[in-house]
Design a protein around this nucleic acid. Structure first.
Length: 564
RNA sequence: UGGGAGGUCGUCUAACGGUAAGACUGCGGCCUCUGGAGCCGCGUAUCGGGGUUCGAAUCCCUGCCUCCCAGCCA
């Protein structure tokens, strides 16, 4: 596989002996939501680099804002990183474990005249920050003495002041072209309960002050983050330099954007809170837990991340690549079964009334070791509605009046007639079978153009099946008109729940197991599925060549939209 | 009209002064007891304009376009 600029930097560092050849990266999520596929890219990068260069990658929670963070999130993040194969060696780091050290360092900066307590209100701070084109104004509190600052900072820490009344600011340059350097706030007063430190601290460090120092404490060599932090790097460097501590190198790369997918944690939270989806692990969500529940494998996700590459070009990857990776992996490992999603009754008129034959079926043509199983065959079957057309278009090879097709692992059957309901809809198809074609081959060598799947009506088991489409109808969910938001682009068809007829071998299938319903797609048993109430989630469809042909047919009568 | 970072097939990514390559998508075909998988093939790209050079995606100049930044979020 081709290299990328971050790997090249590390290779160069090892050549020059920087960091003594050590490689220590970190994956630093804030526990304010569930991890999504964008995080998977970062996990793959950071843990991958560590493994490749014989180093380590720390899992560290950037938990410096108690108002948005919860233990539920840290637990889900740990589980997701593990599931993806991130090896953090059992130890977990928290920025909140460094609160005391960070506080001591802040005091040092105050003593050095590089930080001061500012009494401006949030509003005043904003006004004095200046704009993109105009410099800011210096705070009137900028030149307090070190003693006064130390005293005030200690009282802030002691909880003597109300929220928002004071801040600790770095004394840098209010005229800097880089707004991050205009006396950035290091600490704010927040009388909020932290999920780990409880009420021990009434002040909390800001990201810019906490992140680099946390990296430094851990001895991180390469601090890899996304592009939007490029403007923060000068500040990152400033703090570690003023403090005279280990200086990790911050490197920025492009975050993942995917078509039909939204990556903003804030918006994903809204989808959950406003119940547009059923929780963070709804299979339509781009979260790791949602994808897991959807049936994606860690291997598929890792392979996807490999194919993505790493660069500084902010682009958008097509969802098709992810789906390709999922199919590629599942094709090799998923056991084949037969399941009919939208059943149509078929009666084989010349088949004995109460005969049941056990037909042998291959479990996975891609894996000889997967063996075979047996599927019951009888006089009355179900086939897929889409596999029968009374008036077939030109290139339709499946069942239609007078035509012979093969029932997978069964017999050749020929359609002899249909039964319709009062509305004129076909509700039953009558066929004859050729007993000589048992197992699916004709001794006389005659061919059929199509093979369709089926289940025996008497033996089939019912199962809830959830069919998923993209959560959004637009490639860019944020593409909306004035006054609208991304929820306007939600796809009303993103979830369809049906009751399907499945072959009996699926009775009691274990949650999390994955199958290919032949000709239909890959499905996984939902985590809430039981023997009494089976439930499958569709992971991804198979590529559907026929659907493409049909799409291109110049306006011939297409089958009506599936019943919902 | 400030600062920062970027612009290579439709998409993502290579090529590091020497034949613009791969993957996904798309389109053909072969094969097939899954219209799946597999196999074979086809197509389309260096943002524009100058320059340096035997030779430029790569170096220089210039123009254009895109993304990020004015939280006491991360």
């Amino acid at each position: 596989m081709a290299s990328h600029f971050i790997r090249d930097i590390i290779i160069e560092d090892q050549k020059t002996g920087k960091n003594g050849g050590r490689v220590l990266t970190r994956f630093p999520p804030e526990p304010n939501g569930y991890l999504h596929v964008g995080h998977a890219k970062s996990i793959h990068l950071n843990f991958g680099l560590a493994r490749e260069f014989g180093g380590r990658c720390n899992l560290r929670f950037d938990d410096t804002n108690p108002e948005k963070e919860e233990t539920e999130y840290v637990e889900s993040i740990i589980a997701d990183v593990k599931w993806l194969g991130g090896d953090f060696g059992g130890s977990i780091f928290y920025a909140s474990d460094y609160f005391q050290q960070l506080y001591d360092w802040a005091a040092q900066l105050i003593r050095d005249g590089k930080a001061y307590v500012c009494d401006l209100t949030p509003d005043q701070v904003r006004q004095q920050r200046g704009t993109l084109t105009e410099p800011g104004q210096e705070s009137p509190y900028r030149n307090r003495s070190a003693e006064e600052n130390l005293g005030l900072f200690a009282r802030m820490r002691a909880g003597e002041f109300p929220d928002g009344s004071r801040t600790l600011r770095a004394k840098i340059d209010m005229a800097s072209k880089n707004l991050n350097l205009r006396d950035p706030i290091m600490y704010r007063i927040l009388h909020a309960e932290h999920h780990r430190t409880g009420n021990a601290w009434p002040i909390y460090p800001m990201y810019d002050y906490a992140h680099g120092q946390s990296d430094s404490i851990e001895g991180i060599t390469h601090s890899i983050c996304t592009l939007e932090f490029e403007d923060h790097r000068p500040l990152y460097d400033w703090f570690v330099e003023q403090l005279g501590i280990h200086h990790p190198q911050q490197i920025e790369f492009d975050r993942l954007n995917l078509t039909y997918t939204m990556m903003s944690k804030r918006k994903l939270l809204k989808l959950v809170q406003d119940k547009y989806v059923n929780g963070w692990d709804d299979p339509r969500m781009p979260t790791i837990s949602g994808m897991r529940r959807r049936g994606y494998t860690p291997e598929a996700l890792r392979n996807f991340c490999s194919k993505l590459g790493v660069s500084k070009t902010a682009g958008t990857t097509e969802l098709a690549l992810l789906e390709y990776c999922v199919r590629e992996d599942l094709n090799k490992r998923a056991l084949r079964v037969m399941g009919v999603l939208y059943p149509l009754r078929v009666v084989i008129d010349n088949y004995p009334e109460d005969l049941v034959e056990q037909m042998e079926a291959v479990n996975n043509p891609e894996d000889a070791g997967a063996g075979t199983r047996t599927v019951p065959f009888s006089k009355v079957l179900y086939i897929e509605r889409d596999d029968f057309r009374e008036d077939p278009p030109k290139q339709f090879f499946r069942l239609s009046p007078g035509r012979e097709v093969r029932l997978r692992y069964g017999y050749f059957i020929t359609c002899t007639g249909v039964v319709k309901d009062a509305a004129g809809e076909v509700i039953e198809v009558h066929c004859t079978y050729d007993p000589a074609t048992r197992g699916g081959n004709a001794p006389d060598g005659r061919k059929v153009k199509s093979t369709i799947h089926w289940v025996s009506a008497d033996h089939a088991i019912d199962s809830e099946v959830r069919l998923y489409e993209t959560l959004f109808t637009k490639e860019d969910p944020n593409d909306v008109h004035e006054g609208h938001d991304f929820t306007d682009n939600l796809n009303p068809q993103s979830l369809t729940v049906i009751t399907a007829k499945l072959e009996p071998s699926l009775a009691g299938a274990a949650p999390g197991s994955r199958y290919q319903f032949e000709r239909m797609g890959y499905f996984t048993v939902d985590k809430g599925s039981t023997a009494a109430n089976l439930a499958f989630n569709r992971t991804v469809t198979l590529k559907d060549t026929w659907a493409k042909i049909e799409q291109k047919m110049p306006d011939q009568k297409k089958p009506e939209k599936k019943p919902k």
